[in-house]
Design a protein around this nucleic acid. Structure first.
Length: 593
RNA sequence: GGCCUCGUAGUUCAAUGGAUAGAAUAGAAGUUUCCUAAACUUUAGAUGCAAGUUCGAUUCUUGCCGAGGCCA
């Protein structure tokens, strides 16, 4: 039984003792800084079960707790808030209990697994800023779920087939002159992306020419020769034409190599991959099955639908009249396939932008109606668009922020700022480069992850990414300073392996321990809400608390040896928690900066 | 037109229905013989509008206004 549970029981006992009545629950919260005390009990909700004056009730409970709970050393009541003071000894005991625990805050892995899908790109375009948000969110949520005790499989579904892929292929055949990534020294995804653009250019030119010849614009659009070629290629691909499939494999291979570089720089990875070329035919038999069970119904033209009007939604098509699959068909099939491939999976998280909110609502409902037990644990990790000051990112208007370029820019900015500060003279160029990347990516990742996923982000490449305030580099800097203290402590032969005896705590030491105390519950909360932002903001609070501590108390200069040891231990623990929290966000920490 | 999400300091973000709505940035004023000044301290500034539920509403409900999205 932990202290919180003990306290809960004691408060219940107190009410039982005073009024002879049961109360089902008690609301605890950390006491606000401007009041005296450590834990606050909100008395108001109890008034529903016992009649009385909230202040008086608070006083009585406080007195009872002070008498019956060893750790409670005092209390005060303001309005309906009972603030109780916890003894220094309790905090010291707590700190000593977590001091040696490297996995503080992390739960052991359980058997039940969750599959987290993210990234899910098209293979005809390089990754952009929107994908960065997607990848960072997905990766971080996967790590948070792991930390909260779930087994996690990270996956993505790659949109590797369809007319858009054929467009790049046609353009490469016509204009490519046999170019390859190695011959052009371009990243594969960039090379293929260029041909996708080249296709569009040629296509538009043909339309314009044909309109000039007096052909109806609509016809010109539909019957441009290059578009017909792409369509023909799609048919060939579906037929399994060897040459076409070989080209498709080659070009997709280039793209995957290019993506891999981006993923590595971004620090994300995957345990398993699904390809749409393998899954686009899935789901049809499930639809047939569902039709028999009466979950779906067939219209006169042969198309299959589901009626969700009773659930507040509308009718949704799940199979076209010609028997071909729609996205929904594929997604149903893929979800079931995944559950088969990984029988331990009890839930799935889909990291997809909020324009698909409706789609996933329908998908989950369908799977539930089909009777899959895991349907209730499906979660759409929906996130807002990333907008630029100039408005929405549009590939056609060339306003897309390329992922690779952005990461390079951030690293460059970090380098510029670091050079100005000039603290890294003893580092060689390679070491500096690693550090600049760590800081630049720290700024970028933290900036994106600290925002609640469902909110839109306004991303101003010039101004938004800062290195001061609530930012990644600010936290990294604090970590680096602690490392410096630890190095000095070591050279001073300060032995921090033993627990300190009972010392009176400075207010700042106590605040710091209180903040550390919140780490495990923050992880749980973040896992429940699929929100890396909670971890980010927690870490920031911890760092601010540490900075305040750092400013107000002497660490290595403290003359009381026990105090000195405790403060070094505290600093070390704070650094560990920062590191672990950052790991959950996919961020790294530097030894010095 | 129907449905969904969001509206908080000049700006970017916080706040399981709880106390005087927190930070950061930009602005103003300060702090380095001392453990990294990418730091710290002080100061000023906000819940779109209107009702309702509640002991208590940024949070829940309804209407309106504004931004974005989805569906035809």
């Amino acid at each position: 039984m932990n202290f919180q549970e003990v306290l809960l029981q004691k408060v219940k006992d107190a009410v039982q003792f005073i009024y002879g009545k049961e109360i089902p629950s008690v609301e605890f919260q950390p006491t606000r800084k401007d009041f005296e005390g450590d834990i606050t009990i909100v008395v108001f909700p109890m008034l529903r079960f016992v009649k009385g004056n909230p202040v008086q009730l608070g006083e009585q409970i406080g007195a009872y707790l002070e008498e019956h709970v060893e750790e409670v050393s005092g209390f005060n009541v303001i309005k309906g808030f009972l603030n109780i003071v916890i003894s220094d000894g309790f905090y010291l005991n707590f700190f000593n209990s977590i001091r040696e625990d490297d996995n503080f805050g992390f739960m052991p892995e359980s058997k039940d697994a969750i599959m987290v899908e993210y990234s899910s790109p098209n293979t005809n375009k390089p990754l952009h800023l929107g994908h960065i948000r997607n990848n960072l969110l997905g990766y971080s949520v996967a790590e948070i779920l792991k930390a909260s005790g779930k087994k996690v499989y990270k996956t993505q579904i790659i949109n590797d087939r369809g007319i858009h892929i054929c467009k790049s292929m046609v353009a490469w055949q016509k204009f490519g002159n046999g170019e390859t990534p190695s011959s052009t020294r371009l990243k594969g995804d960039k090379l293929v992306g260029n041909y996708y653009v080249a296709f569009d250019k040629a296509y538009k030119k043909q339309i314009a020419q044909n309109i000039a010849l007096g052909i109806d614009p609509k016809v010109a659009e539909k019957e441009a020769p290059i578009l017909l070629e792409a369509k023909e290629m799609l048919l060939k691909w579906e037929d399994g034409d060897q040459e076409t499939v070989a080209l498709w494999k080659t070009m997709n291979g280039w793209v995957y190599d290019g993506f891999e570089v981006t993923y590595t720089n971004l620090g994300v990875d995957f345990d398993t991959y699904y390809y749409e070329s393998d899954t686009y035919l899935l789901g049809k038999d499930v639809v047939a099955e569902g039709l028999e069970k009466g979950v779906f119904f067939q219209k006169e033209d042969g198309s299959v639908w589901i009626d969700l009007t009773e659930d507040g939604l509308d009718e949704k098509i799940v199979l076209r009249s010609d028997g071909t699959a729609v996205y929904m068909t594929q997604d149903i099939g893929t979800a079931i396939q995944r559950a088969k491939d990984y029988p331990d999976v009890k839930g799935m998280v889909y990291t997809v932008g909020n324009e698909q909110d409706y789609h996933f609502k329908v998908l989950f409902l369908i799977l539930k109606k089909l009777g899959y037990s895991w349907a209730d644990t499906l979660y759409h990790l929906s996130y807002g668009m990333v907008d630029l000051p100039s408005g929405k990112m549009k590939s056609r208007e060339g306003t897309v922020v390329d992922a690779d370029d952005l990461m390079a820019d951030m690293t460059q900015t970090a380098a510029t700022i670091s050079e100005e500060l000039g603290k890294l003279e003893e580092y060689n160029d390679a070491e500096k480069q690693v550090l600049y990347q760590m800081i630049g990516m720290g700024a970028l990742k933290y900036y994106i992850l600290k925002v609640d996923p469902k909110k839109r982000i306004l991303f101003d490449p010039e101004e938004s990414v800062d290195f001061q305030g609530n930012t990644g580099p600010f936290i990294q800097y604090t970590y680096a300073r602690i490392q410096s203290i630890l190095r000095k402590a070591e050279s001073m032969d300060i032995d921090i392996s033993d627990s300190t005896g009972s010392v009176a705590l400075h207010i700042k030491e106590k605040e710091l321990i209180k903040q550390l105390q919140l780490f495990p519950s923050t992880i749980q909360l973040a896992a429940e809400h699929y929100s890396p932002a909670l971890i980010a903001n927690y870490t920031y609070d911890l760092v601010k608390e540490f900075n305040s501590f750092y400013q107000q108390v002497s660490i290595l200069g403290e003359s009381n040896i026990q105090k000195k040891v405790l403060r070094v231990q505290l600093s070390k623990k704070v650094a560990e928690v920062i590191q672990n929290a950052f790991r959950l966000l996919g961020l790294e920490v530097p030894d010095r900066m």
